[in-house]
Amino acid sequence: MPYLQTNDSTQLYYRDWGTGTPVLFISAWAFSGAMWEYQMLNLNEHGLRCIAFDRRGHGRSDDPGRGYEIDRLADDLAEMIEQLDLRDLTLVGNSLGCGEVVHYLARHGTSRIARVVLMSGVTPGMIRSAENPQGFPKEASEFAIARMQQDRPLYMTDGAIKYFGLGSTWPGPPLLSSEMVQWAVRLILECSPKATIECFRASAQINFLPDLPACTVPTLVLHGENDQVAPLDLSGRRTARGIPGSKLKTYPGGGHGMFLTHKDRINEDLLTFIQD
């Protein structure tokens, strides 16, 4: 099994397919690298080297019960890039993974990075504040954590409808099969409950706005117009405005889980951007 050991002795599992130009996928909150199955298969068939790792406490990686603050998560990403000696690299983040990407750039720079894709991101910030009046009240995140602590399987299963935009009145998202939804929920429940809750706090409460100017490489922001988890106006549009020269592409009917509901369009846009 391919594992990488961080400088705090945490073993991180990763998938590494192919030998072409590298693309590194950083997963959504509560998902392991397995979530990228359909993107990795497609891009690998087009000659790209596709890599995805399991965040600490996720998937097959160690569950150390610590290290879920954003600095450590960004440093884990840095260690992955450095130990695999990745260069001319495309970083593709999803949801919390977008926060890890921009924080990595702020802490470690862009010398190894060719381009960035931020998909369904929670950047630049989700919690309501004076500079973010559209954000969610802090009490909402604590209520969600309390529900997870009470019945995590129920919370995640109930959330799938909202996450994937199923049942939307918008004309966009194709309905996923029940088997696909069950697979996604199963991936989530395989993650450590400690990691799930601590990373939820990180994704909900951190202000990534100061990190956005560090994204000085070509950047594509992909966001669903019906994202109920990280609404377009709160997240995607503000992220694009905070990164000079970035391109925002919105998906009519797209919810938060576009990596599955809109996988064909996502794959096409990723390939076009990477090969441009």
Rank of each mutant, 00 (worst) to 15 (best):
G125D: 04
Y14H: 01
W36K: 06
E45P: 00
R128F: 05
S235A: 15
I113H: 06
A230K: 00
H223P: 09
L43A: 08
S129G: 15
A30M: 10
P213L: 06
R152S: 01
T196K: 02
L86I: 05
S203W: 09
P124F: 09
M35K: 02
F259Y: 14
R265V: 13
E225K: 09
R237Y: 00
T250L: 08
V92L: 14
R49T: 07
G57Y: 02
Y155Q: 13
L212R: 11
L271W: 13
L118S: 09
A144Y: 14
P171K: 13
R112S: 13
Q275C: 07
D233W: 05
F53I: 01
F273E: 06
R265M: 12
S203I: 08
I266Q: 09
N207K: 04
N7L: 02
M40D: 09
L91C: 12
A78F: 06
P174F: 09
D276G: 14
Q83P: 02
G135D: 01
S235N: 15
L77M: 12
S61K: 03
F200C: 01
V102M: 08
S203Y: 03
D269S: 07
T261F: 05
L89T: 10
P2Q: 06
R87P: 00
S192I: 03
A52C: 06
T123K: 03
R115T: 03
Q275G: 03
M80Q: 12
S111F: 00
F259L: 14
A74T: 00
A144H: 11
L4P: 02
